[in-house]
């Protein structure tokens, strides 16, 4: 069901044009990569403040109120360019092990952000100027840096075909995790 939908998506005219284009695909991909500096870069700066190892004397709220809007803009560009890249070869990414790892980490990173804003951020007045924020904020910052580092790593590794479904035999767990449909070869 998902596979046939993605197969259809990858056969649409714009998808084929995009994946075959000489300049547009690299432009979209380099936008995706360069915008990392804005999105992950500003997020990490905020995380360092939350962990309490950088920017003493700068209130945490300054990062959240004034830098976070820029992080959000970066995220918007990441999502837009990322969707275009996915649209260029849907099935290939769907069955890519690193893409799946990246997606799982994206979801956990999203949960971490949601938890921070729905709980920890509420009490920010009590620790805004503290050199070392409360434990929960520090944990959120450490998790954020770890997860985004993982997302960047797995995102970069999507380009390498070590675990591609087309290249068999692969270990059983790889085929399972990447959702490869392996046909039983005749003896």
């Amino acid at each position: 069901m998902i596979r046939s939908l993605l197969e259809w998506l990858g056969s649409t005219r714009w998808s084929v044009t995009l994946v075959e284009s000489y300049y547009v695909w690299p432009l979209v991909e380099s936008t995706h990569v360069v915008t990392l500096a804005l999105f992950v870069g500003t997020a990490i700066m905020m995380d360092l403040r939350l962990i309490g190892i950088a920017f003493p004397g700068v209130p945490a709220s300054s990062f959240i109120d004034r830098l976070l809007p820029w992080t959000r803009i970066g995220f918007g560009v990441m999502v837009a360019s990322g969707l275009l890249l996915f649209y260029s070869s849907p099935l290939r990414y769907y069955n890519n092990l690193f893409f799946r790892i990246k997606f799982a980490m994206l979801i956990i990173a999203g949960l971490n952000i949601w938890l921070f804003h729905s709980r920890i951020h509420k009490s920010i007045q009590t620790w805004d100027d503290a050199l070392t924020p409360p434990r929960s904020a520090r944990v959120a910052g450490i998790l954020s840096i770890a997860l985004w580092t993982g997302v960047v790593f797995s995102g970069r590794l999507v380009a390498y075909n070590w675990f591609e479904c087309d290249i068999q035999p692969q270990p059983e767990w790889v085929n399972w995790a990447a959702g490869c449909q392996v046909e039983e070869s005749a003896p």
């Binding site: 990392l36 500096a37 992950v40 870069g41 500003t42 830098l67 820029w70």
Partner: peptide, 13 residues
């Protein structure tokens, strides 16, 4: 790339 993020964030802010 990860170092680029840290460097980029440090410059951009």
């Amino acid at each position: 790339l990860v170092a680029m993020c840290v460097m980029g964030g440090a410059l951009i802010m």
